[in-house]
């Protein structure tokens, strides 16, 4: 497994608050990496820095050996980085199909792709997440679950190599959540993507993740297989709490 993304000593401060402190980790190709930590630990900041919305104060991000530290979000999207948002952010005035078509058009460069090709591509991704019948409905009229799926379709349509998933389970009922998990597993299998998954629901990560990184106060607490991480004293202390298994 080759290295896909490499983060070296990333630091990000907001005024006096250190959100991410000297964080280093790697993501290998084809794995699912879970990313956990208590609220305010800096998880979303890490994703924002990695996807280019925030500039790190120091440190380096490398993707496939290319230094992407100073790249803008759209350049990173062309490199093969995609993300979903914690709170769905669809294009409210566009239909589901057009929203996905935009990312098929603008994502990773595809040679000689016409508008119609992009529409066909977008239809495929919508079908994949199960929104085919809703393709002509404005995104603002979709339900919460459908918005989540639309986000996923939009992220997949850029043909990413690495997908950041920011709390896909939040606000979904158990049935929808299990659907979402199955979809993500299928997406990983079919499109050959690598997944970096922020999640609060430990049971999901225990099952899906190959490796988990736990952070607190912007510093890495522990890294390893799910079993190693959940049995780590520091992680239990900071995040999981004793007896978490009875609730998980």
């Amino acid at each position: 497994m080759s290295e896909l993304l490499k983060v070296n000593n990333m630091t990000k401060t907001f005024g006096g608050i250190v959100a991410v402190n000297n964080l280093s980790f790697e993501i290998h190709e084809g794995e699912t990496v879970g990313f956990i930590g208590p609220n305010g630990a800096g998880k979303s900041t890490v994703v924002n820095v990695l996807s280019g919305y925030l500039n790190a104060d120091s440190g380096q991000v490398e993707m496939n050996g290319v230094n992407i530290t100073n790249m803008k979000p759209y350049q990173r999207a062309h490199m093969g980085l995609a993300r979903t948002y914690q709170i769905p952010r669809p294009f409210p005035e566009l239909t589901a199909l057009m929203g996905v078509a935009t990312s098929a058009l603008c994502g990773k460069k595809r040679i000689n792709q016409s508008f119609e090709d992009a529409l066909v591509n977008a239809t495929h991704y919508l079908e994949f997440v199960g929104l085919f019948s809703k393709r002509n409905i404005l995104a603002r009229d979709l339900t919460f679950y459908e918005l989540r799926m639309l986000e996923l379709a939009r992220a997949l349509a850029t043909t990413p190599k690495l997908l950041f998933i920011d709390e896909v389970m939040a606000g979904l009922n158990p049935g929808e959540a299990s659907n979402a998990i199955r979809l993500i597993a299928r997406a990983k299998e079919q499109f050959g993507i690598t997944i970096f998954w922020i999640e609060h629901v430990m049971a999901v990560l225990m099952e899906a993740a190959d490796r988990i990184i736990a952070i607190n106060h912007g510093e890495k607490l522990s890294e390893g297989t799910p079993d190693e991480v959940v049995n780590n004293e520091q992680v239990i202390e900071a995040y999981l709490g004793r007896g978490w298994k009875t609730y998980a």
């Binding site: 999207a77 995609a82 508008f115």
Partner: peptide, 25 residues
């Protein structure tokens, strides 16, 4: 009606997200 119109519409709706999916806003 072309692809550029669609990209513009995406920018009009949500600039940051459009940036994130690869539009040079």
């Amino acid at each position: 009606k072309s692809r550029y119109g669609l990209i513009m519409a995406a920018i009009n709706d949500d600039e940051e997200v459009a940036h994130g999916i690869g539009v040079n806003i």
